[in-house]
Nucleic acid binder design. Structure first.
Length: 554
DNA sequence: CTGACTTGCGCC
DNA sequence: AAAGGGCGCAAGTCAG
């Protein structure tokens, strides 16, 4: 399949260089930027892979012009992957502008302008960088896996732009009604809503402190101690343990105050336009390969406000999430047949009980979370020996990753995403912190703590990162399936992705296609399992719901 | 005053 | 019941 590398030239021109698989150039076009959408649309008639510096710099404008692309190679994201992958000979990637690519940031402008002024991306050469990628990939160990990862990451970049373009349907009127019921009418700027004001009066009275501000952790802590309560923080869980007349009002205040600050009227004003919530999704934004987001806190839309996410008239949401993604991924990547057997049932934890590895579902869950996150004390530490005996390969994999991290070594995911090099001083000599007099004191203990902490990070990295790769393959395959489901043409009636969060997707679909979407979501999950783990028998069962509102999916 | 950090809490 | 990993965001706090 041919590739077309795009580069901005001057203020309003684009150079497009088409090349074959073996790297030979078959044609160079130079066109006005305004003609780019037609150019891309025309070349999309036959299979092609677009190569560009950064999807966030090209794709939003194309989508705004009504143009979808099938596949791309995102140089920014691919560069970041290749630079850290232990599968890659770094010498093949090195060039004078490597630092420029290292530092390239995605753009999240509300206005999808194609030619931002003074963009650092324009000082980079996409043609040369693309060639380096081809060479580095061809020479890489595990080039099949790494190639899959590059393709999946780039596909994720397309999905991310498309989801922002489409937006998550959001009913501001439903959201406002919810806020009014819980908080009272929208207050004037700088004022507290009526419900919070009433709770504030009760809290101040209970503490006999008319000036108390419960939003100030320090002030609240002083008030609690003055009331004779021996606490060291003001978290809700800590407060729940206390026997004091102020506690119920305080907990209610915290909960509603959180709603107001995170997803109140200001949030609606800022992030919901024309019935759509449009956060920016940032593929590869987390070191493990998970996505980050910016704008409206898309990674933590509370269940409390999800009733406001409502499908359009005649449309439905298909909400799907994977049950216990990470332990299943661990079973697959370690080739642990015993754990895969437990995962054969829809509930992996129940499967572990059935096999006799643990006594209860609760033990299975707490034990596996501990194994993947690195808890060594308490309940989950107690369960580790039993798990290790029953699932030596799975537990052995995360233990090995932890030990490697503690030694300061790099670990990598199944497809080859590498962990960062530890930068802390713990691997070397202790640094002089310049503190008053205590430099060096307790540093051995500090270093040990830091070493174990990094080991927990690398332990989790291999599982969380491979889980992110599974999800990326799921998403990429589902995107293609949904497109085919819509039939030919580019009408507005197609099912499309509107939300993705680690192991959950939301598809907005015409009602009559909802059943077909459910099928495709399941097929895509099975396909992702095969892509990552081949014939190894590991299942990825989904919880799928067809609903009018996102809140109805649970 | 601004910017960096801390605290607390939402999501997986 | 939390712990143990990864985030983003808002408000408070504190140093410069």
């Amino acid at each position: 399949m041919n590739r077309i590398v795009l580069a901005r030239r001057g203020e309003a021109a684009v150079e497009a260089r088409e090349c074959t698989d073996d790297g030979s150039t078959v044609g160079v076009d130079r066109l006005p930027a305004v003609d780019l959408p037609d150019f891309v649309r025309e070349h999309e008639r036959t299979p092609v892979r677009w190569v560009w510096d950064d999807t966030t710099r090209w794709y939003p404008a194309l989508l705004a012009a009504g143009v979808r692309v099938e596949r791309c190679h995102d140089l920014r994201l691919a560069h970041a992957l290749l630079r850290r992958s232990p599968f890659v000979d770094q010498a093949l990637l090195t060039a004078g502008e490597t630092g420029g690519w290292d530092g390239l940031q995605p753009v999240t402008a509300a206005d999808p302008a194609l030619f931002p002024l003074d963009d650092p991306a324009d000082r980079l050469d996409p043609f040369a960088e693309h060639e380096r990628h081809q060479v580095a990939l061809a020479a890489a160990a595990e080039r099949g896996r790494l190639g899959l990862l590059l393709a999946a990451e780039s596909s994720g970049a397309l999905v991310a732009a498309e989801m922002t373009h489409a937006g998550l349907p959001w009913r501001a009127d439903v959201h406002e009604r919810l806020l009014t019921e819980l908080l009272g009418p929208r207050p004037a700027p700088g004022m507290r809503p009526a419900t919070l004001e009433r709770l504030l009066v009760a809290i101040r009275a209970a503490f006999h402190d008319p000036g108390l501000n419960p939003d100030s952790p320090g002030g609240l802590l002083r008030a609690l101690r003055a009331a004779g309560l021996p606490v060291s923080d003001t978290r809700s869980w800590t407060l729940e343990q206390l026997d004091h007349p102020a506690v119920p009002a305080l907990l209610e205040y915290k909960k509603l105050s959180r709603l107001l600050q995170a997803n109140g009227w200001n949030w609606l004003d800022s992030w919901v336009r024309d019935g759509r919530f449009r956060p920016y999704f940032l593929p590869g934004g987390v070191v493990t390969g998970r996505w980050a987001s910016t704008g409206g806190g898309a990674l933590s839309v509370p269940t409390q406000v999800r009733p406001a996410a409502v499908a359009d008239d005649g449309w439905r949401f298909v909400v799907a999430d994977v049950a216990q993604l990470e332990p299943r991924v661990l079973a697959g990547m370690s080739g642990d047949a015993e754990m895969a057997q437990a995962a054969r049932s829809a509930d992996l934890y129940q499967g572990m009980v059935a096999s006799g590895a643990v006594a209860s579902r609760a033990d299975a869950k707490v034990g596996m979370l501990g194994a993947m996150y690195g808890a060594t004390r308490g309940e989950s530490g107690r369960l580790m020996p039993g798990l290790t005996r029953r699932y030596p390969r799975a537990i052995g994999l995360v233990e090995a990753a932890a030990r490697a991290g503690e030694r300061g070594e790099i670990v990598h995911t199944l497809l080859g995403r590498g962990s960062p090099v530890p930068t802390g001083a713990w691997a070397e000599r202790p640094v002089e912190l310049g503190g008053p007099g205590d430099a060096g004191e307790s540093s051995a203990e500090d270093r040990d703590r830091a070493r174990r902490s990094w080991g927990r990070f690398t332990r989790n990295f291999v599982v969380q990162g491979t889980g992110a790769e599974w999800a990326l393959c799921w998403l990429a395959d589902l995107r293609n399936r949904l497109w085919r489901l819509g039939g030919p043409g580019t009408g507005n009636g197609r099912p499309h992705l509107v939300f993705f969060l680690h192991d959950e997707v939301v598809v907005h679909t015409p009602e009559e296609l909802a059943g077909a979407v459910v099928e495709e979501v399941r097929r895509a999950a099975a396909a992702a399992g095969r892509l990552l783990f081949g014939a190894f028998p590991i299942d990825f069962p989904l919880d799928v719901a067809v609903v009018r509102s996102w809140a109805d999916a649970d």
